[in-house]
Amino acid sequence: MTFALAVTVGALFALGTFLLLRDDLVKVIWGVTLISQAANVYLITLGGVTEGTSNSVPILADHHEPFPVTTDPVVQALVLTAIVISFGMTAFALVLSYRAYQENETMDVTEWDQ
């Protein structure tokens, strides 16, 4: 499972970097979005999700047994906040790209007037 997550994070970073280097503004925005999502997957991977562990809430655990192993809730809250912020920034960047298209009549950044 760890290898699959590492490959997924690597592929997301690679595809995001590839899109970031394109001339089309929408592809650049998608590249930034993919890189931010790759960072979120990376943080969740580091948060302690492992196979074979119980992820139940410690309050509901049996009082005679030790508490089960749980994931770190701080990492989950951080990633949830990052997802919301990246969604807002993506929407804002798409609106800015539409405005740039209205001004320059093209989405190719190499054809814009200096």
Score class of each variant (00 low, 15 high):
residue 57 V to R: 01
residue 68 P to E: 06
residue 60 L to S: 08
residue 56 S to P: 15
residue 82 A to P: 04
residue 46 L to D: 10
residue 49 V to C: 02
residue 92 F to M: 08
residue 47 G to D: 03
residue 109 V to K: 08
residue 36 S to I: 00
residue 17 T to M: 09
residue 15 L to D: 01
residue 94 L to W: 05
residue 53 T to Q: 14
residue 113 D to T: 11
residue 15 L to F: 10
residue 12 L to N: 13
residue 95 V to Q: 14
residue 97 S to W: 04
residue 98 Y to Q: 14
residue 11 A to S: 14
residue 45 T to D: 13
residue 13 F to P: 00
residue 19 L to R: 00
residue 21 L to Q: 14
residue 61 A to E: 07
residue 78 L to A: 13
residue 114 Q to K: 14
residue 59 I to S: 02
residue 14 A to C: 11
residue 15 L to E: 08
residue 37 Q to M: 13
residue 28 V to F: 15
residue 98 Y to I: 05
residue 72 D to P: 07
residue 39 A to H: 07
residue 1 M to N: 11
residue 20 L to E: 03
residue 9 V to H: 04
residue 61 A to N: 06
residue 56 S to E: 15
residue 3 F to H: 14
residue 36 S to C: 09
residue 99 R to S: 00
residue 101 Y to S: 01
residue 82 A to Y: 01
residue 31 G to P: 14
residue 3 F to T: 12
residue 82 A to S: 09
residue 113 D to E: 15
residue 67 F to R: 15
residue 67 F to G: 15
residue 20 L to A: 02
residue 81 T to H: 12
residue 75 V to K: 03
residue 4 A to F: 12
residue 111 E to F: 05
residue 61 A to R: 06
residue 109 V to A: 01
residue 5 L to R: 00
residue 14 A to V: 12
residue 100 A to I: 05
residue 100 A to M: 12
residue 68 P to C: 02
residue 62 D to F: 15
residue 113 D to V: 11
residue 54 S to T: 10
residue 60 L to K: 03
residue 99 R to W: 10
residue 7 V to Y: 07
residue 26 V to T: 08
residue 102 Q to M: 01
residue 80 L to I: 05
residue 25 L to A: 11
residue 84 V to W: 12
residue 93 A to L: 11
residue 63 H to D: 02
residue 44 I to S: 02
residue 32 V to D: 13
residue 71 T to L: 09
residue 21 L to H: 12
residue 111 E to G: 07
residue 106 T to G: 01
residue 107 M to L: 07
residue 10 G to F: 06
residue 12 L to V: 05
residue 14 A to E: 00
residue 65 E to R: 12
residue 26 V to L: 12
residue 49 V to N: 02
residue 97 S to H: 05
residue 92 F to E: 04
residue 29 I to K: 00
residue 107 M to C: 11
residue 36 S to V: 11
residue 50 T to N: 07
residue 8 T to P: 03
residue 90 T to P: 10
residue 91 A to T: 11
residue 92 F to N: 10
residue 110 T to Y: 11
residue 61 A to Y: 01
residue 29 I to S: 04
residue 60 L to V: 08
residue 5 L to V: 04
residue 47 G to V: 12
residue 59 I to N: 04
residue 27 K to P: 14
residue 99 R to D: 00
residue 99 R to Q: 05
residue 15 L to I: 13
residue 25 L to C: 06
residue 90 T to E: 13
residue 95 V to E: 13
residue 79 V to G: 00
residue 69 V to R: 09
residue 35 I to T: 02
residue 112 W to H: 01
residue 39 A to D: 02
